[in-house]
Amino acid sequence: MIVYTLFVVSLIVFAITQILPADAAVMMLGENATPEALDALRQTMGLDAPIWQQYFSWLWHVVQGDLGTSLRTGQPVGPAMFEALGRSLLLALFSIGLMLVLAIPLGIIAAIRRGKIADMVVSLVSYAGVALPEFVTATIAVLVFADWMKWLPPTGYVPLTEDFFGGIAHLVLPVCVISIILIAHVSRMVRSELVDVLHTDYIRAARLKGMSRGHVLRRHALRNALLPTITIVALDVGYLLGGVIVVEEIFAIPGIGRQLIVAIQARDLPAIQAGVLIMAATYSIVNFIADILYAWLDKRIQYD
């Protein structure tokens, strides 16, 4: 499944980068290069071969772990991208962690207090959460917490290994900004799943066996309601990765999103190809793991 996904993604990425009006040879030698020099370079780079040959040669290198050389820096793309990916994953993991810690309890509270004030507050929060794009919330957050309050540093990235607390302080705003939309979405999903589960016959049956509300919630309802959350969170990783691009740009975090923006602006084809491929792979792997986890937790799956 992952293999097929990456194959399709590689096709798309290659197709898009091929149609891009950017000539790798011109980019390397500059606008003033002689036609002869350009031709010679094209030949050595294999750019004169038919497109499908170029594609398979590129794919063959990718399969071997060679993601190509950046047209901008002249360095291999792979190591730079993976290093950037590491920073982005740190950001993503903190965001998912924060989201889970907040969204699940919020969803549960809204579901068990359905129709009450708590439920309305949670649904207001979830509507507010999806009201603004990340770059707006990020900008406002910087304005309020960095410029006015001076509680947190506005932008920048400090590795945790260098200065742990400084690094955390730099991560707080980006993590919060990324989490907002995810919290809104996931808490809504948790609520609706739990409301559905609480209306099932087996929950009623458990209550009529004399089980207390709390016991039924813990032992019977949550387990079934939270299972689908795994899938939802995994699917949201796609959104998360998009958010990472914007947030890294605003907070000047040298992650894969920033690398991609730079690559896109510079039309650095190998870097774009590598970056998109890595993002798609990350998404696919997360979803693959989520599927396995789901099947492992829900033993019914194998029989369906």
Binding site: T5, I16, I272, M279, Y283
Partner: peptide, 22 residues
């Protein structure tokens, strides 16, 4: 559907960026 799944593995913002860039 498998192909759609594959396309969806590219975040939609990134996809839009690529298309606009193109």
């Amino acid at each position: 559907m498998r192909t759609i799944d594959a396309v969806m593995s590219i975040p939609s913002l990134l996809f839009a960026l690529l298309v606009v860039n193109l």
